[in-house]
Design a protein around this nucleic acid. Structure first.
Lengths: 336, 336
DNA sequence: TTGTATGCGTTATCAC
DNA sequence: GTGATAACGCATACAA
């Protein structure tokens, strides 16, 4: 393959001049620019980014490490990241951890070896271990979607999980429900925990007997939602409303409810966190608290890029975006 | 950051010895291995893959360039690629072209600069331009999902689109349908074309008047499916069955049918290519021809890796996998 | 089994 | 405006 030297020779200039022209850096004359560009085309020259990165210490690559790219919430978030990164001339590497700490560590190791310029991380655990590992290597990092212990000195972009959950449950209570169950994700994940906290707040505030609180922890998956719902539907007295802590859980719950011969919302009401994309559902049905996934990705990327260029303020930022309540059929009408 | 030299100094060996121990290449004593490993931990040493790649000419990175990562078919395919690559010690970069030739070119340029070891490409166009561009740079490439003109000397892994479409339409004909419309993707994409060809074969073979053939080309998206269905539902006489050429089109079609006040399958039957994942639908409904997406990704990756190591035979291979017919409610019962 | 010298392709630094 | 030189961190080639 042709190198920068080949181009330089062919154009009758020094290689550093070619470099300047390729990178639009420093001074060069239009005449040489034309000669160099012609040589590049003739030789089919493709710059070697490995060499460039080795020398310049910048790769123009960001990494997005998340837990489940098949979840439309994260797919949308990833789009936000990619668009913001692309605008700034960066490409993005996506990594999928499946909520596995081991996978997370494996990927972080590889990404640091790869000398990525920055990392956007949806952490699998609520500890600062991974963050410290990354920061020890000197690579900027922004945490997405989840809280970390306050000793972690890192930027965070996430949503109002507590408030979103609070408002969803408040809605159900306003419709006359008292026996409301929450079906959540892994207890170790902050969003799962926060949505339960919001649920408890609404229940307590409504003066509902604490013994009526029904909390289930599982995974943020359809199958886990199915299993948790099966359990909860056997509780006596049966809850009149279910709160699914994310979209995939909601689908599993809906399936379990229907398999039990019940209808939503006639026999049992439902609300959920996170919407499902219009292109995968035949008609929107769930009453949901929607997180601005795309904006979350965008904001986090902008923050990361600001860190890279040193534009960001010294201290760490925590950006907390609001959720949006969308009321559809699944929550049903008021009961008496 | 610590370099291989720092590790070597600390362990009291030459850097090349550290290199050998890291890469498990060549000979080294257990004693030095322990000293080196200790030094690596103490210094928090992370090998620089840029430097390694520059020297060794191998990055252990593959790239998967596809048209729509939000389509569950491609998500599954991507998993197959990632698993196969990961087993062989490669990481995968995913790139999304949105069926845009410009995006495709942009990404290929970047990937070649990045010195990826190989590329898996779902081409946006049925020309060999992109393939030639990649091959000119000396990078192995395997084409996925789509046909290319026969002058392209490249490995291909794809599915029996013609046959799958043929069997779906044959099924409808067997149920008594005569007025069947096909709603397909971009005419320029081979899978869209092949599914129309299979449709025509079945129609002709059943001796159905050619004037009853109803073919619509659009995009492989939900919105395009919606629009095409709206058009087709206004044709007089209205078709009694619709064949959607992929899963996203099917969802759009279903929505248009329902918006028109019609029921599937009672008023109009439906079949489709590609399944939707169980975790995104409340209950499987569509009669479909399923492509083994995961296996496609796996096979293509194995083929690419074989090319990298020179294990593959000289001549190009075309792997064509069969589709699986799954009959559910949307195709309905036999008519008289 | 271990080490020395060298170069991968590019850009930072300094000089003209 | 342009160029010579060195260096980035590592692995290949060869030697011991």
């Amino acid at each position: 393959m042709a190198t920068i030297h080949d181009v330089a020779k062919r154009a009758g200039v020094a290689s550093i001049t070619v470099s300047r022209i390729i990178n639009h850096s420093g001074y060069f004359s239009q005449e040489k620019r034309q000669r160099v560009e012609a040589a590049i085309v003739e030789l089919g020259y493709v710059p070697n980014r490995l060499a460039r990165g080795l020398r310049s210490k910048r790769t123009n690559i960001l990494a997005l490490v998340l837990t489940d790219i098949t979840n439309p919430f994260f797919t949308t978030l990833a789009r936000g990241v990619e668009d913001a990164a692309s605008d700034a001339g960066f490409i993005v590497i996506f990594c999928n951890t499946d909520e596995s700490e081991t996978e997370e560590q494996k990927y972080l190791q590889v990404l640091l070896q790869q000398q990525v310029d920055g990392i956007l991380l949806v952490p699998t655990r609520s500890t600062s271990d991974s963050i410290e590992f990354i920061q020890k290597h000197g690579t900027p990092v922004v945490v997405l979607d989840r809280r970390l212990p306050s000793n972690a000195k890192v930027d965070v972009v996430r949503c109002e999980s507590v408030d979103g959950a609070y408002r969803l449950v408040q809605l159900l209570i306003g419709l006359g429900h008292r026996q409301i169950a929450v079906l959540s994700g892994p207890k170790i994940v902050s969003t799962a925990e926060d949505r339960v906290i919001g649920y408890r707040q609404a229940m307590v505030e409504a003066g509902i007997d604490e013994r009526l609180q029904l909390v289930s922890y599982g995974a943020f998956t359809q199958s886990s939602g199915y299993e948790m719902a099966q359990q909860v539907l056997n509780v006596n007295p049966r809850p009149t409303a279910l709160f699914a802590a994310n979209n995939l859980i909601a689908i599993g719950v809906l399936k379990a409810v229907r398999d039990a011969g019940l209808r939503v919302p006639e026999d049992i009401a439902m609300v959920s966190f996170d919407d499902l994309p219009a292109n995968l559902l035949t008609s929107p049905f769930f009453t949901v608290a929607v997180q601005p996934a795309y904006e979350m990705g965008q904001r986090a990327t902008q923050l990361l890029l600001a860190r890279l260029t040193g534009e960001a303020p010294e201290h760490c930022q925590e950006v907390i975006l609001p959720t949006d309540l969308i009321i559809r059929q699944s929550s049903g009408q008021a009961r008496n």
